[in-house]
Design a protein around this nucleic acid. Structure first.
Lengths: 190, 190
DNA sequence: GCAAATTAATGATTTATTCAAG
DNA sequence: CTTGAATAAATCATTAATTTGC
């Protein structure tokens, strides 16, 4: 979504960058073509290009707009780091920090081959017919749900407007079901 | 019921799968109540529930009809992906300018690898204010989120032969996306 | 009205990326 | 460089929804 800073249309007239007033170079503003090719290179596996590669890439990208070698270098540094960061965020959608502390808590230790992944048990639960579970629900503070919202990265490619408050405000859109029990009650079992 | 391919006649489609009288082992057929609660959870921000959450959700939903944990897992996977697909139209190049200066480059205290040439020459092209290698630390959350060790690996309920070529044959037909002009050509300058 | 035929939804599976550890 | 873990993307396959001919 809106990252909180002005987003400039890349490739559109920005004189300080386009070469008009070249005295003090503003910062590089890549064009869509440049980003596309860089992304392709990244997808192809390139992570830390050599100096030679950087110069070749820069030369190639200069066809689409002003660019310097350092821009290419920084782009790969940043993109690599942000992919990593995004991966961490996405993977941490789980907001229940108080559990699973002992499982795989030793990343540096040798992992035996018999290690069973955690989620496999989900599928190994034999679908024994309904066991009429009359389990008492444990009521946890709803703040955990709020934390789940935070984990949905704001810099994501996809719009994820799913804030906790939005869950209520957007109910008007689905006119079919007007009556809903309070969400906080329905979700309390988590 | 001629879906265009031979009917496997494996599960004997019973419509009363999710309704409560689950007898057949066809695919899960959620009830409206189950879908409603799952949707509420999704609206509240839940995207990738942990194993523990999945089990709790499954337990809760079993009150409304037969369900397994894997159904909950699959539901979130599918719903997340398909919501994303619906909003895919506004997808633009997601390039973030916020942290233009990357600091892991710090050439002052990190010696590049042997096979990686020195990078200082890159910056000598136009060294302006960009080189503020101020060694700021990446601030990761102190409570490093304990990620539920999960795996999507499932024991195949069905054994089916996968037409590997089908996945690629369809690529040429979808003219809507026009993604990826031959990467080999675009990267040939390297 | 009714099923067969067709289409739309969606559950379930496979494949491709990515990071990270060894 | 190889491999494991996790997940997103793609796609297969089944069920409901809808259409259609009678």
């Amino acid at each position: 979504m809106s990252p909180g800073f002005p987003i400039k249309a890349r490739g559109l007239g920005h004189s300080t960058n386009g070469g008009g007033t070249g005295t003090k170079c503003g910062r590089w503003n890549p064009t869509v073509e440049q980003v596309k090719l860089l992304t392709d290179l990244f997808k192809a596996g390139l992570r830390t290009p050599s100096t030679d590669q950087i110069q070749k890439i820069s030369t190639e990208l200069s066809f689409y707009g002003k660019i310097e070698s350092k821009n290419v270098f920084y782009w790969f540094q940043n993109h690599k780091a942000r992919e990593r960061q995004k991966h961490r965020k996405i993977s941490s959608v789980d907001f229940d920090h108080r559990q699973y502390k002992d499982l795989s808590a030793s990343p540096h230790r040798y992992r035996p081959r018999l290690h069973q992944p955690q989620r496999k048990d989900i599928f190994e639960v034999c679908d024994e017919e309904e066991e009429k579970v009359t389990q008492t629900l444990q009521l946890f503070p709803l703040t955990k749900v709020e934390r789940a919202n935070v984990t949905a990265g704001s810099h994501s490619v996809y719009t994820r407007e799913q804030a906790y408050t939005t869950a209520f405000s957007t109910y008007s859109t689905c006119g079919a079901e007007m009556e809903h029990p309070p969400l906080d009650l329905r979700l309390s079992f988590l």
